[in-house]
Design a protein around this nucleic acid. Structure first.
Lengths: 194, 194
DNA sequence: GTTTAAAGTGACATATGTGTTACTTTGGTG
DNA sequence: CACCAAAGTAACACATATGTCACTTTAAAC
């Protein structure tokens, strides 16, 4: 029989939650194992038992996090009709605001010339395409139902919707009014009907 | 009479151009005096003759760069009529793509608790407001001419337009079609007329 | 209670960045 | 051509991050 070891002081979930917190607070370049071990309340060395370097840890985290987000996005298919899918998408984007920052981290990793994490970089590269594919049904439905202008590129329609999360709300307009106005501009534009 | 000194190896413009390049390539946390001196082909020490630390250098650069951008934006007033101002604004945003990244750097600085650069931080804080003000005439004109929906918040209208620069063009759609489609969505929306 | 192996620690060598300072270079002035 | 002040250099002390390793702790298995 195998002998069990002592209890772990942090679970994999604890680890990834801490990684997420530090990436959002300090960004990719500000991420250190010191900050991470401090947050997990363990010694720095303990983390090396699981990950040999920060590149592998961060890219593993990013791949996992993005896949979780894509899984959330795919629930859009449970919504019937284009308009309720549209509302669902906007709501989920604003519920998961932090994802936008993490996408910035991912772009940073892809821009770095690190060869050690070639495999994870390849996985990260595929994420935008996967996001695009998981929402392609939504756009196609809109075009089939005759609700979305057919000549606009799918990737721009999706990019435009996803990017709205990053618009800074300097004047603290209430979330409901803010999201409502965004939905109106995206769907009907900011110009009056001519 | 004052005695002149030896020739400088780099001008202030050279310095700021190098700062810009490194900030865009490496971000705020990745910015180092080593990288900077390497790019300027001088020793690290030489830079300390002009700036005692990187925070002051970067915030000085940011303030200057943002003011230059705002000066460009204000040329919008030379355009007559809301629609030509709208076209002018979109064109200038896409011509100055790098400004978007620099705004990210500015937000990073404002989030840091550094007290040494209090004065520059105050100046940076005012930038979004100044940008808002320099374009308020444009939005007001659109509403007066009856071309822009009056119930939409000015800050959202501007934020939405400025944010379009960050939409990733993964499928390399030609710039002209891309910008044209963005203008259409912003003005008329992505839905067909009902 | 002894054994065992995974979990965790703390110190070390190494690397990189910072800010300072004594020194050298340069080129116009007198 | 000697002076001298600004420009630039290179080395130093210091700080922080990295990755490794011998060592200690822990708790289940026996």
């Amino acid at each position: 029989m195998k002998r069990m070891a002592r209890e772990r002081k942090f679970s994999t979930n604890d680890l990834f939650a801490a990684v997420k917190h530090i990436l959002i607070q300090h960004g990719y370049e500000g991420f250190t194992f010191s900050l991470l071990s401090e947050r997990l309340e363990v010694s720095r060395g303990a983390i090396y038992k699981y990950y040999q370097n920060k590149e592998n840890l961060i890219t593993d985290f990013m791949v996992r996090e993005m896949q979780l987000f894509i899984a959330d996005l795919q629930k859009i298919e449970e919504q019937t009709g284009f308009e309720s899918q549209f509302d669902f998408l906007l709501d989920i984007i604003f519920k998961k605001k932090e994802v936008h920052q993490l996408i910035g981290v991912a772009q940073h990793i892809l821009a770095s010339p690190n060869e050690e994490i070639y495999e994870n970089k390849e996985k990260l590269k595929k994420i935008p395409l996967e996001m695009y594919q998981s929402l392609q049904g939504f756009i196609r439905l809109g075009k089939i139902e005759g609700k979305v202008k057919p000549h606009l590129p799918d990737s721009l329609l999706l990019g435009m919707i996803l990017q709205t999360i990053a618009i800074p709300n300097h004047f603290r307009i209430p979330e409901a009014e803010w999201v409502g106005s965004i939905k109106e501009i995206i769907s009907q534009g900011m110009f009056t009907k001519s």
